[in-house]
Design a protein around this nucleic acid. Structure first.
Lengths: 297, 297
DNA sequence: CTTGTCGCAGGCTTACGGCCATGGAGTTCC
DNA sequence: GGAACTCCATGGCCGTAAGCCTGCGACAAG
């Protein structure tokens, strides 16, 4: 017969309390139940574990050793179960996340603030990377969740739209275009352009838009980080084309104007591995992210 | 709902084999059974542990961690059960034993040889001590079993007769009494006597016997160890009165003659704590001891 | 001697754990 | 593109186990 945890628990309680009656009470079962469980345990081991007397029970030498070991194992087991339940309840947990750098300036901070307030025990590890790499990280299992843009068809991944990002022109104060409610792509032809890395998804969109208008996108500067681009703009070196999420509001020395013709939109997607359950922590993050996306625009 | 070991085993198997079907086969249950067990485990934890797909199952991140921990715990648990069964089967074990020194020369070695042959894994720890101390060790729980002599009434201890020891005179070769089939106590009056420590149970018996005959037991030498007494005898320094079990047979230079008038008998008892189960190892030792006592006389 | 405590045994009920048969989703291969 | 296969989930059914209650015997204490 196999030895069950229940029997081990019964035995440990009997040893600790020195009485089947009290042990039964502590375990919330009747005393005959405990008698039976202990007999079964002894039969399963072929070993006498307790000496029963009129004043209670005393463990045998081997019983004492077993009880101590069982107690340790049961403690570990219960601790493990408790930890798992904490994870399930989103009290603790870690989400490994990949995100486009542009997300990091507005959407992500809002979502993280909301999450921290609601689920302070959850830790988010962020890998920021360009769209292609974001997808690769996800496929490799190095992250559980990704925020990126449209990806080539991939049965392994599954994307749901999060927000639609509009491209805006970041114009230095004092520039002729500064103060315009919106600009056209053609308006920018006269100014030096600050664009992002050709690897970046933003740049791909921009190039496509220029081509569609019959224009050539010839950047005066090419940078990797959005913050660098904004720095250059502030220094008056040119006009940058960036996603609105990256520009934010009210940057000193910079005027932001949506690009109206053509409107360049970029769908920000939440990407996850198809058929894989999200961790409870990821679910909590996702909820916070959706709220942040819904209100922030 | 509580988490059971069975569920943990099912889960570990599912993770290791990557398939419920194969895990079920490995565990010797049907596949639906495993499905149910895993669902119950997930419900008990409130946590998704496996992603089920058409190609089998893959653990979630938390599931993977849990599986590793469960596997370790289950291994420890099973090891513990195996060890307990080894103890029960007398494959391993330790007996803490207290014995009178006189037992150590004949009866005990025979019993130990027999036991070693039959149960080589059992270890015997021997404390040799005088009768009073033997009982004290037993009462204090420092030993499990004792070989001693009659003790004052004690409800805590329980004695069963093992063998009856006769007192013999150990006579040096060349002594006038040497070669006699038996001697009387009075015969010894003319020789220097070698007796044991007044603490010893043997000495108590000898003193009582002398007193009963109206004689005085005035030892020329008093020693603690029987082997010392025999050494003195061999050196021709006098006659020793010792239990037959201690003298053994055919010691060179020493003739042993039972003491006939009065016959001095000493019951050797096996003493154990009342109401306490003996360990399987002790049972094995006891069986060997009884056989040795039965054949050895 | 009585009383209380303790563990054990028997009888009964419930519910848990198991199997079988079946279904649905997805993959593979021709 | 469809058929066969694989794999997990579901539902119905049954046996056994694990639980409770009542009552008994053993033992210790008053």
């Amino acid at each position: 017969m196999a030895v069950s945890l229940r029997q081990a628990r019964a035995f440990v309680a009997a040893v600790r309390l020195g009485s089947l009656t009290r042990a039964a009470e502590a375990l919330g079962v009747s005393q005959p139940t405990l008698t039976v469980q202990l007999r079964q345990l002894e039969e399963a081991l072929g070993l006498r574990l307790l000496d029963r007397g009129a004043r209670g029970t005393l463990p045998t030498a081997e019983g004492l050793r077993l009880a101590a070991e069982f107690e340790r194992l049961i403690g570990d087991f219960d601790l493990l179960v408790t930890q798992a339940r904490d994870v399930a309840a989103q009290r603790v947990g870690t989400v490994r996340l990949a995100a486009l750098p542009s997300i990091g300036t507005t959407l992500l901070p809002r979502a993280l603030a909301r999450l921290r307030e609601r689920r302070p025990g959850i830790q988010i590890l962020i890998r920021d990377a360009v769209a292609r790499r974001v997808a690769a990280l996800l496929r490799a299992g190095e992250v559980e969740l990704a925020i990126g843009t449209d990806l080539e068809a991939d049965t392994e991944l599954e994307a749901t739209p999060l927000i639609a990002d509009r491209m805006v022109a970041a114009i230095p104060a004092g520039h002729p275009l500064a103060g315009r409610p919106s600009v056209d792509l053609a308006d920018l032809a006269g100014s030096p352009l600050i664009l992002t890395d050709p690897e970046s998804s933003v740049r791909v969109l921009v190039d496509r838009a220029f081509a569609g208008q019959g224009l050539a996108a010839s950047p005066a500067y090419e940078v990797t980080y959005m913050s660098t681009a904004l720095g250059l703009v502030r220094a008056g070196l040119g006009v940058a084309i960036l996603p609105s999420s990256a520009v934010g509001a009210d940057l000193p020395g910079i005027a932001a104007a949506p690009i109206a013709r053509p409107e360049i939109r970029r769908d920000i997607l939440l990407i996850r591995r198809a058929g894989r359950t999200l961790s409870p922590a990821a679910e909590a993050f996702l909820a916070a992210l959706r709220e942040a996306a819904g209100e922030g625009g």
